[in-house]
Design a protein around this nucleic acid. Structure first.
Length: 111
DNA sequence: TGCTTGACATAAT
DNA sequence: CATTATGCCAAGC
């Protein structure tokens, strides 16, 4: 199994600060996989529960959970994000403009 | 070995 | 912002 690949993705996902979320594309770029956002999702799929990787901080470009929110993982991610003070919209999405993983300190809610 | 699928992104409308 | 069409790479059978 290509741990070198997943490892890069896990490393990047762990880089996501609490209370914020990053898109698959953003993680993919940080992991050195520009354009291969799918591989990020694939890696997270292989991600074991005992890995300690904050996979719940990874969402799609719409700021929404692609998983089935009607069952386990989907509901779990939302629950975990809520524990990070992340607010969901009525549409069940996250405002990337507010909770998006911005490396710059510039934040609409902070600045 | 080759086809199909997949926790997605981006461009155009 | 939502929808539709296309691209990308790796895993599964």
């Amino acid at each position: 199994m290509p741990d070198s690949l997943n490892a890069r993705i896990y490393e990047t996902v762990c880089r996501i600060p609490s209370g914020r979320v990053a898109t698959y594309g953003q993680v993919a770029r940080e992991a050195g996989l520009p354009g291969q956002a799918r591989l990020v999702g694939y890696a997270l799929h292989n991600l074991p529960d005992h890995s300690g990787v904050p996979w719940h901080r990874v969402v799609n470009a719409r700021g929404g959970i692609s998983l089935d929110q009607t069952y386990g993982s989907g509901r779990l991610q939302r629950a975990l994000l809520e524990t990070e003070d992340v607010i969901f919209t009525d549409d069940g999405r996250i405002d990337l403009a507010v909770y998006g993983w911005m490396q710059d300190s510039s934040h609409p809610t902070v600045g």
